[in-house]
Each structure stands twice: as C-alpha cells, then as structure tokens.
C-alpha cells in the first residue's frame, strides 16, 4: 500500500505541475501592433538577414538600464532595446531580440542574429572580428564609492592600495587589469559576474569602490542617491557603444548607420537617452 501512497503523491505533483503549465496559458500582450508612421526611405534590398523582414538582435538581457527583461518575463526593455527598435523601424523591419549569454555572443552573429546591440564597446581587437555601426552613446569609466566614504579620487592612480569591484570581461575589468598587470597601479580587483553584485559588495564594505561605465553608474546612483556617490569620471577616454555586425554584412552596416544618422538629426537618440538616464526632479 505504500506504493499507492507514493502513486498518489506523484499524481498530485503531476496534476499540479500540469495545471500550472496549462493554467498559465499565454497571456502575452499584443506586441505586433505594426506601426507604419515612418516612411521607409532607407534602401535595404541588398541586406542579407537571418530572417526575412526581421532585424534579429542579440543581447544579454541582464545589464540594466541598457537591456533587461520586463516583469512579464518576455518583453525586452532598455536603452539599447529602444535604439535597436527604432533602427529596425526605420529600415522597415520588425525587430526581434534574442537573449543570449555574453560568452560567445559574437560567435552567433549571422547565425542566430544579424547584429549585437548589447552595450558593446568598440575596441581594436573586436574590430578584427566584426564591423561596427557609428557609435550611438559615449561612456566614460567612473569610480563609485559609498556616500559617506572619505576616499578622494581625482585619477585612477588614487586607487593605489585599494580594493575595487568590476564586472567580469567588461572594459572596466580590462582597463583596471591592465593597470595592475603593468604595475602602474597596485590595486586589488574583484571581478563579478553581474554589476549589482559589485554594488552589494560596496554596500557591505567588502570593497572600497566600484569601477564601471558612467551610464551604469548613473542609473545606480539615480536609484540609490542616499547610498552612493560618483567620485571620479575619466573624461579623457571616451568609450563608444555601437552595434556589432558580421564582417561580411557591410550592407547592413550602411543601412544601420543611415538610420542612426537620421535618428541623431531628429533628436531621437537624445530623446531615448533622456528617457533612460535623466531623472525629472
């Protein structure tokens, strides 16, 4: 009879599981409201796309405010998402985002998606493997410390002897590791998988400062004005974010650049930037 008991337990779990899966049937909001306000003027006839009529964009959807998944678990939101959506619209294409891990994100260009729009910094090494659109945002390396910290930093050299956190494999990581390995600055680096972990460590005083992109810093500061302050921003070296495109796909590069240019002229990029990074007081 123990068998029966177990059987019933299994049946219970199974029916509940099944009910959950069927019970929560698709309730997605209708995202296909096609918008035909913008007249397509950009010629994309010789652009090769992974899916016809769709601009498929790869991104790692956990880098707010650049890209993130909304609470419904499906809708991509963020600065990059808006930029890519606007670009696609101007090319007369629908947009589709593919959420993928940062590791190997570039390997799947032209395989799974046409381009990567995921806070990608232009670097000389990357230029050998892919081509970039014109940059759509400029970023600076910033140092964030606790609000009541007595650290005074006017250049990266002031981080001498301190412990900092960075997000793994980001430009901040590469930059600071360079400083350390060349012996320029003796700094202890903690590399985290995700940026929020860096800030948690800062809050717990396990580290002295977080080094990250200025836009990321801005958004964290915005939300936690009473916790952190921006101590230093390296204005000398701007870092440029652009859309990464497959080596062979110059036609797409040209088309995207045209769209970005139009957006710049019409002030759309600024509008999106303000929406994501400037708080109304």
């Amino acid at each position: 009879m123990r068998k029966l008991k177990k059987l019933m337990a299994a049946a219970l779990i199974f029916t509940m599981g099944a009910a959950v899966i069927t019970g929560c049937g698709s309730q997605k909001e209708d995202k296909d409201k096609k918008n035909n306000n913008t007249e397509t003027t950009i010629d994309i006839s010789d652009v090769k796309l992974v899916n016809d009529g769709v601009l498929t964009v790869g991104a790692e959807m956990s880098y707010p405010p650049f890209e993130d998944i909304a609470e419904d678990g499906t809708t991509p939101v963020g600065f990059d998402v808006d930029i890519a959506t606007e670009v696609a619209d101007r090319l007369g294409l629908e947009v589709k985002f593919i959420n993928t891990a940062w590791d190997g994100i570039f390997a799947a260009i032209d395989k799974n998606y046409d381009c990567v729009c995921s806070a990608v910094t232009i670097t000389p090494q990357r230029k050998e493997e892919m081509i970039f659109s014109t940059p759509y945002i400029k970023n600076y390396q910033s140092v964030v410390v606790l609000k009541d910290s007595d650290l005074e930093i006017s250049s990266f050299n002031d981080l001498e002897g301190k412990t900092i956190a960075v997000q793994k494999e980001t430009t901040s990581d590469i930059l600071m590791s360079d400083y350390k390995s060349t012996g320029t600055i003796n700094v202890e680096i903690v590399a985290n998988e995700k940026i929020p972990n860096c800030f948690t460590q800062l809050e717990n005083k396990e580290i002295d400062a977080v080094v990250c992109d200025s836009s990321v810093a801005d958004s964290f500061l915005n939300r936690n004005k009473d916790k952190y302050r921006l101590e230093f921003q390296d204005d000398s070296e701007a870092e440029e974010f652009a859309i990464a495109i497959g080596m062979e796909n110059q036609a797409l590069q040209t088309a995207i650049n045209e769209a970005l240019e139009d957006m710049e002229e019409e002030g759309v990029i600024k509008e999106i930037f303000d929406h994501w990074f400037v708080t109304e007081e």
């Binding site: 909001e29 995202k31 918008n35 306000n37 419904d72 809708t75 959506t85 929406h275």
Partner: peptide, 12 residues
C-alpha cells in the same frame, strides 16, 4: 514604435 509600459498579467 517604442513601448514605455509593460503590462504583465500572470494567471496561476
């Protein structure tokens, strides 16, 4: 074109 509000409805 760009959406600003995400409406989530989860039925459990």
């Amino acid at each position: 074109t760009r959406k600003y509000v995400t409406v989530t409805y989860n039925n459990m």
